[in-house]
Amino acid sequence: MTETTTNKAQTTAEEPNTPAEFFKDWSFEHWAYLHGKPKASAKFKTYPEDFVVTENLGFDLTGEGENVFLLIEKTQLNTQQVCEYLAKFFGRRLRDIGYAGLKDKQSISRQWFSVQMNVKQDVDLSTLGTENIKLIEHSRHIKKLKVGALKSNHFDILLRDITDVIDTIGQLEKIIKQGVPNYFGLQRFGFKGNNLNWADRMSNGEDIKNKKIKGFALSASRSYIFNQVVNERLKQNIFTTPINGDVFILNGSNSFFSQDVDDEIKQRLLENDIHISAPLFGKGEFETKGQILELETKIANEHANWQQMLIEQGLKQERRSILLNPENLTWQVKGNDLLISFDLATGCFATSVLRECVDFIQEYS
């Protein structure tokens, strides 16, 4: 773990009773690459239109029911700000607004929201919208939109002023064949890793009353342990190599199983029918055995306070694929710029794809 301590005077001014060791700037540069660190660099998110994401629900709306579904195009707004606008517009409580996932502020995002409303209530949407909020389409549905209820996200990302377009294209060609590590993106950890600082404070006994911050802390600590396991497998050159004791996860599913490695397992891995998995830590025993169990246990034990916190907060042991295969990956060269398009299953990060093809300054949204 690489980290530095920030200026104590600056960080303790707002939280005078919090020990200085809980104010750290976390570095994530040690996480390894599958295809080697890219030689090229580029500008990323120079303008909102450089990062366009469109949600794909993956299911048909019924056209009736007590939830109004809205496909909103938002520009330079975070998801919470749109929720607050919709709650005020419809005169509803904030908890009556549903969404499937958080989207970057520094972007153009076409995102679905739901608003709980009486089935007999007429809805006038003619005045819905602002300079940064545009209604694209709407319909009714029988269920509220819940977090994670998406099939995928489509990304159109413009990288500007690439120093080596040829090298970047070469990296993209490798990604098509072999995928990328399924790291949680830096957005998960907050500005300079501050969500991990909250995790440290919480795991050391501080009562975090803000539910949003509490959720960020739990999610960030769990994700960090996962990323550390992925990094270690890359360092030990066993990222794509199945080991007896591994746990495999079905492609596009949360279902997992353990089985000795044989020709069938190797073939299913090659066909992307299954993937090697790593733990999302919580209550319960690791499903792995032998060498892999030792690896996962060692890394989890390096964060014993986080382990205990996650268990006490009721999170259960889960698994996640260590490999991410972007779907429909294409690109267009525009001089020294490159427009990259691809689809990712919900819960996966576009920045984890980009970091394998070009070096860029990470944006925190």
Rank of each mutant, 00 (worst) to 15 (best):
L324A: 13
S114Q: 07
R110Y: 08
N197I: 01
T288R: 03
N244Y: 05
N244F: 03
N210H: 11
L172R: 13
E363K: 12
F226M: 04
A220W: 01
K334W: 00
G170T: 05
V229R: 01
Q116D: 07
Y85N: 10
T330M: 01
K8G: 00
E312K: 11
E363H: 12
G36Y: 10
L94E: 12
D262M: 09
G98L: 11
L61M: 12
I292G: 02
T330P: 01
L324T: 04
E294R: 13
Y224F: 15
F257Q: 10
E294P: 03
V229I: 15
P181W: 07
P242G: 08
I213C: 02
G205C: 04
N132C: 11
L196H: 01
T79A: 03
I249W: 06
D262Q: 08
N244L: 04
K39H: 12
T12S: 14
N194E: 01
Q80C: 02
F189Y: 11
I162N: 14
S365M: 00
S203H: 02
N328W: 06
L344V: 06
E49R: 10
Q10T: 12
N237C: 03
F155G: 05
E173N: 15
F44P: 02
K37A: 14
R355Y: 00
Q307T: 12
G282E: 06
Y224T: 05
E29Y: 02
